[in-house]
Design a protein around this nucleic acid. Structure first.
Length: 427
RNA sequence: GUGCCUGUAGCUCAACGGCAGAGCGCCACACUGUGGAUGUGGAUGUUGUGGGUUCGAAACCCAUCAGGCACCCCA
């Protein structure tokens, strides 16, 4: 094919996909706003330098869409939102009202190898609380996440949020006598455990310089799912989760570490428990140093992000996609023939003026064809204005969900249509 | 960026060196004033793209593009 195709990894939203995107957006908004978070957004294009500071070399060097603008500056399509957030907060740190609760849903780009659940262009929900340094704030963010998961129909058996605490794990490493400079290596070791064979993982652990005794101690830690009881922070977190009514979705898991370097305390990730996709639905945690790192005054922060791609697949695989109704207009006014078409147009106008979304069949065609169209578009009501009706000043109103129809005075059309739309569909 | 697998009708797939097919969907008609059901008929196409091998390529080889799996990373 010589046709120019879409750029690799980009998304084409046909109406059906667009409906899903909007559905997710709607549920994200509802969950965010139910906890009092404000919607905001940053630029889609940023200077590469913004990310060079803190996002990690991998993200900047290999995963960003970077290009030179016409003025010769290097710019990038944003690969993440947090640096923009940090800058915008730092710029108005003295005039914003804290604690600050912000959320956002928008497009991001990463130059990655596309595969299932991973595209180069994706939408991401970001939500953060800034200015509060407490496990209860972390618990609130987890509760927002669970509120969302619940609202799209996922129950605790289908989706679980796994929680750990970076600082606490570090203190445990300390107890094992693992020196501070090895902590990042140990973190990525833990991150990788589920992906490696046990023997190879052991070998790798020794390779990065752990003693056999430290390795044994580490394995005991990672197998201890009651470990959280030793952490005052985690105990407070779970107590708050209980009060917030989301405890049944959340589990402590010492194996959750998360790759990003800037997490300082609580970290969490939500996974689909049964599905084919072993990717996180959402992930986040506490990052208390980020604002100071980009030149602002120190400010504690906690938050998480969720991509639209994985959650879309999870919903689909669990049969939780909302029914797709192609048309936003539940009413079709058929066009009988050329001479009567203006009568149909005028009737549609009346319905619209009464606040009812109405489509007219755009040309004269056989009625079966027009009814098939209405059916495929999942319309609820079809109106017929033929010679008989026009002569008597009447309109045929048909409820497509059950096939019943009635002939009414033209003046009663709006009322009759409204009654059908408000009644339950028989379909 | 690396390794492996896969690209055939709108969709799911068959044909695996010898005339490109099926099911679903689509369109038309039965039904010139009524959709979903049924029946009958019809069109599906540069076999992802470009090159090579061969008398002959959808098939074999090379390149390229896209998708999938793993690595990497992560939403």
């Amino acid at each position: 094919m010589s046709r120019i195709q879409a750029v690799k990894g980009t998304r084409e939203f046909y109406p059906e996909e667009m409906a899903l995107r909007n559905y997710i957006y709607e549920k994200v908004r509802a969950a965010s706003q139910s906890f009092g978070y404000q919607e905001w957004d940053g630029p889609f294009i940023e200077s590469i330098d913004l990310y060079a500071a803190k996002s990690g070399e991998e993200l900047v060097r290999k995963q960003s869409f970077v290009f030179e603008d016409r003025g010769g500056d290097l710019v990038t399509l944003r690969p993440e939102l947090t640096p923009s957030l940090a800058r915008m907060i730092a710029a108005k740190q003295n005039e914003l009202t804290f604690p600050l609760r912000w959320w956002s849903f928008g497009p991001f780009w990463r130059y990655e190898q596309p595969q299932k659940g991973r595209t180069r262009e994706f939408f991401q929900w970001n939500i953060d609380m800034l200015g509060v340094d407490s496990p209860e704030a972390d618990a609130e963010l987890i509760a927002v996440a669970v509120t969302f998961l619940r609202s799209v129909g996922l129950d605790p058996r289908q989706a679980t949020v796994f929680v750990n605490n970076r600082a606490f794990m570090n203190s445990q490493f300390d107890v094992l006598g693992i020196p501070r400079e090895k902590w990042p290596d140990v973190s990525s070791l833990i991150d990788r455990r589920s992906k490696m064979e046990a023997a190879k993982w052991d070998a790798y652990a020794l390779e990065i310089g752990l003693s056999q005794k430290q390795l044994d101690g580490l394995k005991t830690l990672l197998g201890d799912f009651d470990l959280w009881k030793k952490s005052e922070e985690l105990v407070r977190l779970f107590t708050a989760l209980d009060a917030l009514g989301v405890r049944d979705y959340v589990k402590f898991d010492p194996n959750i570490m998360r790759g990003l370097l800037y997490y300082t305390g609580t970290v969490f990730e939500a996974f689909e428990t049964s599905g084919s996709l072993r990717r996180a639905i959402l992930g986040g945690g506490r990052y208390d140093n980020l604002l100071a790192d980009v030149g602002g005054k120190p400010l504690p922060a906690t938050g998480f992000a969720m991509g639209d791609v994985v959650i879309g697949i999870v919903l689909q695989e669990n049969g939780l996609l909302p029914e797709f109704v192609p048309t936003p207009a539940p009413v079709l006014v058929t066009v009988f023939d050329k001479t009567l078409s203006m009568k149909s147009y005028a009737l549609a106008n009346e319905l619209r003026r009464a606040g009812i979304n109405t489509a007219v069949y755009p040309e004269p065609a056989k009625l079966p064809k027009q009814f098939k169209f209405a059916d495929k578009m999942k319309m609820r009501v079809a109106l017929v204005l033929g010679p008989d009706e026009v002569e008597k000043g009447r309109v045929v109103v048909k409820d497509l969900s059950n096939g019943s129809q009635q002939t009414v005075e033209k003046e009663a059309t709006v009322q009759t249509v409204r009654e059908i739309l408000e009644s339950k569909s028989a379909r």
